[in-house]
């Protein structure tokens, strides 16, 4: 779906490289979380996935297309949609369904088909009952789901989300995460989620950690989070249960490593507690 080869980038020739020789491949249907501290280069990387930024060195293939091929820009943007942090910056219309229809209208899709697409997109994010509402009166989580529906209306193969839950409360976060997991499992949508929230990253198939423009980890979450000290040294955090189990193991207690969900922690501790 997305492939980078020796991707290097800087914002100007005089400044140091923000991305250094990045090689990654994201396959169809994968759910990938990208972590990294502020300024690590993760947002810069994400912007290469649909040609918002172009590499200074190396190559990026988005849905098989070289992102430097300007004539294919629309094809790239249609295949790979992006959702950003602040939902208020991404909503253009005054009625929810008109906002979702914005992209297909611009793509020249026939009216009947737009109707169908918009209904499908709103249904997929669970916002059908709000289709006649004004977006500014919705909650943050609802607005962000509208932004996702707007991207879905282009029928992309992959959605890249840059900290979509950073401004949301726990309910809003859960709504957005449930939507993403549903899209991934039911619609086989490829999801790339950039986040600071470790509890969200544990839901991914694969976690990539970026530090100073380089990939330092690329593995399933239970492996990536197993070395808590190393993750903390990278300026990141692990889920609370992971940290607790790690500390208990260090203190000599016989509990499994790589515990990332509260359910696994229940199980492990219940055995210890007898």
């Amino acid at each position: 779906m997305i492939k980078t080869e020796k991707l290097t980038f800087n914002y100007s020739g005089e400044q140091p490289n923000v991305l250094k020789d990045i090689d990654i491949e994201i396959k169809n249907g994968e759910f990938v979380a990208v972590l990294g501290h502020n300024g690590s280069g993760k947002s810069t990387l994400a912007k290469h996935f649909n040609a918002i930024l172009l590499p200074v060195g190396g190559t990026v293939y988005a849905n098989g297309i070289n992102t430097k091929d300007e004539s294919r820009l629309y094809d790239i943007r249609r295949a790979i949609g992006m959702v950003f942090q602040n939902p208020d910056n991404q909503i253009v219309a005054t009625i929810v369904e008109e906002d979702v229809a914005f992209a297909p209208e611009n793509l020249g899709v026939p009216t009947a088909e737009i109707r169908e697409t918009v209904d499908w997109a709103l249904d997929t994010v669970g916002m059908t009952e709000y289709k006649q509402h004004a977006p500014h009166l919705l909650s943050g989580g609802q607005k962000q789901r509208i932004a996702i529906a707007g991207v879905l209306a282009m029928k992309p193969k992959c959605i890249v989300l840059d900290e979509p839950t950073a401004m949301l409360d726990p309910i809003g976060r859960k709504e957005v995460m449930d939507t993403l997991m549903h899209l991934n499992s039911k619609n086989a949508m490829t999801i790339v989620l950039i986040t600071h929230n470790m509890d969200e990253a544990v839901n991914a198939d694969r976690v990539i950690i970026i530090s100073d423009g380089e990939i330092v980890k690329d593995a399933p979450p239970h492996i990536v989070f197993s070395d808590v000290d190393e993750i903390k040294a990278l300026g990141l955090d692990v889920p609370q249960v992971t940290e607790l189990m790690y500390e208990l193991r260090k203190a000599g207690l016989d509990v499994p490593s790589g515990v990332i969900t509260i359910e696994d922690a229940y199980k492990a501790l219940s055995e210890v507690a007898g």
Binding site: P170, I262, A273
Partner: peptide, 16 residues
């Protein structure tokens, strides 16, 4: 109320 408690609180209450 749409809020969440720390994971640790739930874990410790549940097990111990």
């Amino acid at each position: 109320m749409g809020l969440d408690a720390p994971q640790i609180t739930k874990l410790m209450k549940h097990v111990y």
